[in-house]
């Protein structure tokens, strides 16, 4: 006699503890003899727990891992050394790109920023909290780690998290990059691009203005970062850029003082013009 498999509905009710003792025992027996079924229940249990976690107050950084370019691996010592160097230079001052023409990295970064139109997103996802994700599939080369900051205290919500395959010959280098988009409540939007290689970018936090667009670029370990915004209050944007820059170097969540500063800066600022 063939035993009938529990239905998907029944498995869900089992995970939710909604079955009678007899029905739950029957499911338990089915799980014991069917590994695939047991895997489904394990996934459902994990899904339920992750759903519970979604409402926890965001506090800290979003941790992202990028596939490593060939021949390059994450080297904590090298990053620590660059961290010491940059901190010694000071975060309050940053360089500005000189030259009449926009640098190649900025042209490509701007195209990505402009292509993102938050108002056209059907249902902007709300993302916050400490999470650990990777882009693409794990390759033999391992991963590079990057941290995306949670800017909730600045009233900016991470609503976009997409991978972008950079074309050959572009200003941002090659490989798979991450485009993180933060939306404000008063029309602001900030793009943060995480590049698998920062070779095309200036080593230290560097600012470049082009008409209304403000771009900040820097390297952190082997990774490159570009932060872009337009129409945003000057003091607020500078504070955000410096804070994000520091976060990517320290790989640590904001402290209370930083969160307060971001919050106060937002309160003092004027709404975005863009």
């Amino acid at each position: 006699m063939t035993r009938q498999q529990p239905s998907w509905e029944t498995l869900n009710a089992y995970v939710d503890g909604e079955l009678s003792a007899g029905a739950a025992a029957e499911v338990a027996r089915a799980l014991a003899r069917d590994r695939a079924l047991a895997d489904q229940v394990a996934s459902l249990t994990q899904l339920k727990a992750a759903t519970q976690d979604t409402v926890r107050d965001p506090d800290g950084a979003v941790e992202i891992a990028l596939p490593a370019p060939e021949g390059r691996r994450w080297r904590p010592l090298a990053v620590a050394a660059s961290l010491v160097l940059v901190v010694a230079i000071g975060l309050a001052s940053f360089g500005s790109w000189r030259g009449a023409q926009s640098p190649p990295w900025m042209v490509q970064a701007r195209a990505l920023h402009d292509a993102w139109v938050p108002s056209q997103e059907p249902a902007p996802p709300k993302v916050g909290g400490v999470v650990l994700v990777a882009l693409g599939k794990a390759g033999a080369g391992g991963y590079l780690k990057a941290y995306l900051p949670d800017l909730t205290s600045a009233r900016l919500t991470l609503t976009r998290l997409e991978t972008v395959t950079l074309p050959q010959g572009g200003g941002l280098g090659e490989g798979v990059a991450l485009h993180a988009g933060y939306r404000g409540t008063r029309g602001c939007k900030i793009s943060l691009l995480v590049l698998p290689s920062g070779a095309a970018l200036p080593r230290e936090l560097t600012r470049r203005d082009d008409a209304a667009l403000r771009a900040f670029a820097w390297r952190a370990g082997p990774l490159g970062y570009v932060l872009l915004a337009e129409g945003m209050d000057e003091a607020r944007l500078v504070l955000i850029a410096e804070t994000v820059h520091r976060t990517t170097l320290e790989n640590a969540p904001f402290d209370g003082e930083t969160r307060t500063a971001l919050q106060e800066s937002r309160e003092r600022s004027v709404p975005c013009l863009a």
Binding site: Q5, Q40, S43, L47, A50, V62, P124, L132, L161
Partner: peptide, 22 residues
């Protein structure tokens, strides 16, 4: 009625948040 099969590694707070919003 088909058995659904998933890679558990995909399920995390962030993927669930992004999924819920959709």
């Amino acid at each position: 009625g088909n058995i659904w099969c998933s890679d558990d590694r995909l399920i995390s707070a962030i993927t669930v948040r992004l999924g819920l919003a959709k």
